[in-house]
Design a protein around this nucleic acid. Structure first.
Lengths: 122, 122
DNA sequence: CCGTATCCCTTAGGATACTG
DNA sequence: CAGTATCCTAAGGGATACGG
């Protein structure tokens, strides 16, 4: 079997790539925050309200992590009276749309499958 | 602004869906195990060797979780001399291929972006 | 409103050792 | 080979309170 090597390499490559993705997007909150962000929620408290269950402390630290990875930009508008801070998805965040769509889709179908539980053939 | 409601609902739906997906596929190992599985690694120790860094304890518990979610099937071949156990991806696991592909792809590009670090325009 | 600081608890997951 | 048992640490994340 000489294809073994090829397969091993392919597997290792896949492994490394999703590892990278998980490193950046993994955890309970990061993708959810990105969803809220691209949906149009930009203010801190707005985000906290949209993402049920997240605490200010966690939201804050996750936002920093996401900014470091270039997925959002923290913008301070000093010209307003009570300084307005906005978290805006970057252009780069667009690349996540596919990820979110695919993952969300899978989650949706999976839930149906689990709850519906049609007798699947083995 | 009367589209707000629609947007809120859409966001909530997305949120719930990826939440479900993360619940099933989240964590450091589950997706990696599925990759190894569909790549063709089926035996316990084989998997442990393919997925660098995973301990027997974790591999074992993750395999159970994945089986519960219908993504793999544990098959015992009692007809061999030293009983052979195989973990086989189910048909359903096919639905993950897209997820893995998209996520892996994103991870790959992201790594290039981070390491290469071409001056991106804001 | 926009966060940070503290404190604490739970969980994921690593190390090692051991059994059928 | 295929796991389980134990133990332990680190990190994630919740609650509350507080400051700019």
């Amino acid at each position: 079997m000489e294809k073994t090597d090829t397969r091993q390499v392919e597997c290792a490559t896949h492994l490394a790539s999703v590892e990278d993705a998980i490193y950046v997007l993994g955890g309970k909150w990061k993708l959810r925050i990105m969803i809220a962000l691209v949906t149009g929620y930009h203010r801190f408290n707005e985000l906290q309200r949209a993402i049920e269950g997240i605490s200010a402390r966690v939201l804050s630290s996750e936002l920093k992590s996401l900014e470091l990875n270039g997925l959002l930009k923290r913008v301070v508008k000093a010209d307003q009276t009570p300084v307005v801070v906005e978290y805006l998805p970057t252009e780069y965040a667009e690349t996540l749309k596919e990820v979110i769509a695919v993952l969300g889709n899978w989650g949706l179908k999976h839930k149906k499958r689990i709850t519906g539980k049609i007798s699947q053939p083995a």
